[in-house]
Design a protein around this nucleic acid. Structure first.
Lengths: 235, 235
DNA sequence: GGAATGGTTCGTCTAGTATCGAACTATGGT
DNA sequence: ACCATAGTTCGATACTAGACGAACCATTCC
């Protein structure tokens, strides 16, 4: 018999489907509100509140109250690393779950991550934007989170988006970041989140380049749509 | 929303008190049978069997059938590291549990780990034995487990133990290792397990140097007993 | 001030699962 | 051949904890 502290508590907290989904969502690095997390996990506010309380009691997540909002994020790097390890073990322990189902390739290619584009196309876009100098890292906080890098539009970026007709008028009341990188677990690469990320996906739908698949997170681009997407955004 | 594989499954498996106890027991590095694990967790064989099945299904532990016994051990280093990380997070998330209770110092000093001596005295003994050259590493398997080092008594060791009157007659039918190092979580140091470890603890009880505290894992040495323990075993 | 939105608390319902007793198979010792 | 021990399977039970509805504070916007 060996000393056994609160492992059980921590593991049990992560071992609930809803809470795991919330934590996964937070692993993207962004701070999310209670209702955002509730909708991410597909539950009501009340339930979310209860879960978030438990998670923060155990210091797996930390809270920052800002007005009537409460922003949650992963407590520290230690917790993030734990999630990563968990991920690693989970992948090898359940290979059967990894066999690519029919929908998987589509999911990998392009999907919705909250309100912006994730998957291979999202990653490609993000890389291209960085290469073009449209976005740039303004600030790096290593204390808070692993990859909590703050991004911003460069002046070139602003010019570019207004030229192609994507309005970047951020209501100045909003606390929302203009740009933000979002880490994708499956690929372990970043894609673009934040206001710009959302605007771009919106633009894709508006221009009918792509449409969202019913009841799924898949974003299905038409052949023509994908070409235009590439030529316009990644010249 | 982010990709979320079987994290839940893995975490939920560890997040059960009984299974966590079993895993913790296995973290010592030794391979244990189903009944040993059952008694370690304080449950019946049937329940243990069910748990062990789940754990091995998820590849958190691996099984080796040997005759009518089934030996279980932590599947690989990945899982062990996960447990360590979990441990780390658990400690910081539950500080209240760490405030040293009245019995804690005693537990830290000397306690039973299955059938051998753990705690500070166990660690000191192990270090002394190595320094004296009574035990030596014969084989190191890095593939299997983290600290699965195989130990053996040296000829000096055999002479020493027969001199002080501790019989090391291992029934040759037994599969049990003569010496084995056992990693102590709380201290993160090794102490001596295996047949020799058990024999020594037995010797302590027999010589009335110490007695086991009722209903606890504490081994309480008398003042005289502790002196003799030191002078005889760690000259 | 009122309306709207973000969160929390409370009580109740329900589902998942850990547990055990009993019955069973398989291996080993005598 | 017999008995003892190691382990599994099955069915029944009991308990935990996750979910929601309803009612409640707190903040912001008009």
């Amino acid at each position: 018999m060996v000393e056994e502290p609160n492992i059980v508590r921590v593991a049990a907290l992560i071992g609930d489907h809803t809470r795991a989904t919330m934590l996964s969502a937070l692993m993207s690095g962004s701070a999310l509100t209670a209702t955002e997390l509730a909708s991410a996990a597909g539950i009501t506010k009340q339930t979310a509140s209860a879960h978030l309380r438990k998670l923060s009691d155990a210091r797996l997540i930390s809270v920052a109250s800002q007005g009537r909002h409460r922003y949650f994020c992963i407590a520290d790097a230690e917790v993030a690393e734990l999630m990563e390890k968990l991920m690693g073990v989970a992948i090898r322990s359940g290979i059967k779950h990894l066999q690519p189902g029919p929908k998987d390739p589509l999911l990998r290619k392009a999907r919705v991550c909250y309100d912006h584009l994730a998957g291979e196309m999202g990653v490609a876009l993000f890389d291209s934007f960085k290469a073009q100098g449209l976005i740039a890292v303004t600030e790096k906080q290593s204390t808070d989170n692993i990859s909590q890098t703050k991004l911003d539009l460069t002046t070139e970026g602003e010019a570019f988006f207004s030229k192609i007709g994507i309005p970047i008028q951020l209501p100045n009341t909003s606390r929302r970041a203009i740009c933000r990188s979002c880490l994708d677990w499956s690929v372990r690469k970043h894609h673009l989140a934040g206001f710009v990320g959302a605007s771009i996906l919106e633009h894709c739908f508006h221009k009918k380049w792509a449409k969202r698949e019913e009841g799924s997170r898949i974003v299905r681009f038409s052949v023509k749509g994908e070409k235009q997407f590439s030529s316009v955004l990644m010249p």
